[in-house]
Amino acid sequence: MLIIKDLHACVEGKEILRGINLTINAGEVHAIMGPNGSGKSTLANVLAGNTNYEVTKGEVSFNGKDLLGMSADVRAKEGLFLSFQYPVEIPGVSMLNFLKTAVNESRKYRQVKELTAGDFLKLMREKKEMVQIDSQLTNRSVNEGFSGGEKKKNEIFQMAMLEPKLAILDETDSGLDIDALRIVANGVNLLKKPENATIVVTHYQRLLDYIVPDFVHVLYKGQIVKSAGKELVLELEEKGYDWIKKELGE
């Protein structure tokens, strides 16, 4: 589904990603871990098409298409979803209007008939129940005045509405209490399908207790330095990232 080859990227002239190679197949859950500043969020943002990041080298193919050649909105319409580490507030724009536009833009792109207001509301009700989001949230402006936990739940709710092929969760566990974490993880698990894939970007093991990864990669200084199965999570938790640094001879 996603093939990343030798991906290099810069922010403000500073190289953050230095040759990432990664292949993700449908049905898989990949965790990307690593110490602060290793490039985890950069990778998520580069894949989503954030123009603050400049790709200097490499290729990414998404379902056989050249991902890097697409604008951010086209990537989204192709089925790539990013759950933001810091979801953005848009005052005065209702969640309802925002999501209806988002859902119908994707449908238009796929040449599927747009949802009527009635069908849209019905879909929204179903998904709200699924991810256990407070129904009041959808009556408010996008993320405006939401607590940290509400913002993260709202991301998962949007993911449920948009049904992406590839979901990238960027530090979704940060700022969540244990109940919210469980709800968010549960939502992600419910949305898991054999034809979809998920990338979980996280610093801690906590979220991975609930969303169990098939593969774990450690990102360090802009490169994937170690890949293994889920047992790597425990090892990292036990030994810390210093262990990786030592293995690398630093």
């Binding site: 951010a72 909105d73 979801p87 953005v88 848009i90 925002f98 536009t101 994707s106 792109y109 948009l162």
Partner: peptide
Amino acid sequence: QIFYCNQRGISTQDAIGMIVNGY
């Protein structure tokens, strides 16, 4: 804000219209 809208499949054009209308 524009990137957030883009990431949900909303074009920059529509995003600006939406943000301005919200404002």
